[in-house]
Simulated scan of single mutants.
Amino acid sequence: MKNIHLTLLFFLCKIFLVFAQNSTFDTKNEIEKEVRALEMRRFEMMVHKDTKGLSEILGEDLVYIHANGVLEKKSQFLETLDKGKTLYQSIQSEEVGIRVIGDAAVINGVATVRVWTVGQTLDMHLRYTDVYVRRNGKWQLISWQSTRIQS
């Protein structure tokens, strides 16, 4: 009888672990979808010069490193957009991978970007990494860095 109880207890523990792992997996998938949707919304806001919307998504401690090596903080990035110094005409993202680590999400992807800056239009193929953190229930971008992919 003791062996039956131990066997039953063992199987119940295994079933509990499987459900707990599946629940964690489902939660991570939902977070990945949420962050991915926010990332696409951010790209749309950049194209439409929606600096008010971007201001809510960008963390106050943002470090934004462009493909040319220029580093901007949040206020500089928004000012550049607002004053039309840089105009994003299109941003198409592909090959996106998202890793969720606690209250942080790291995105690695490839994007094709058409941007007007310094008096010329540039078509760039970029590999990028960005980091979002969840603060007070909202995801905010705190880091972006991109590198041109040579054709």
Rank of each mutant, 00 (worst) to 15 (best):
132 Y>W: 10
127 R>D: 01
54 L>S: 03
36 R>F: 13
107 I>F: 00
91 I>P: 00
73 K>G: 12
119 G>Y: 08
38 L>V: 06
136 N>L: 08
133 V>F: 12
85 K>E: 14
32 E>R: 08
111 A>G: 01
69 G>C: 03
130 D>M: 03
54 L>T: 05
25 F>H: 08
56 E>M: 13
60 E>L: 13
38 L>Q: 05
47 V>Y: 00
37 A>D: 15
66 H>M: 15
26 D>S: 10
43 F>C: 13
92 Q>G: 08
41 R>G: 11
44 E>P: 04
91 I>V: 14
93 S>E: 08
99 R>K: 14
100 V>Q: 01
95 E>P: 01
71 L>R: 14
37 A>Q: 09
48 H>K: 12
27 T>Q: 13
82 D>H: 06
55 S>V: 14
133 V>T: 02
108 N>F: 08
41 R>D: 14
61 D>M: 02
48 H>M: 11
41 R>L: 14
108 N>M: 13
63 V>R: 14
95 E>T: 03
126 L>Y: 04
112 T>G: 07
81 L>Q: 04
61 D>W: 03
43 F>S: 14
44 E>Y: 15
121 T>C: 03
71 L>T: 15
92 Q>A: 11
98 I>Y: 01
91 I>Q: 05
110 V>W: 03
80 T>Q: 09
127 R>E: 01
98 I>N: 01
23 S>Q: 09
129 T>Q: 09
31 I>P: 04
115 V>T: 04
36 R>T: 15
39 E>W: 08
84 G>K: 00
35 V>K: 02
29 N>W: 10
29 N>I: 11
40 M>L: 11
116 W>F: 14
130 D>G: 01
112 T>M: 06
52 K>F: 05
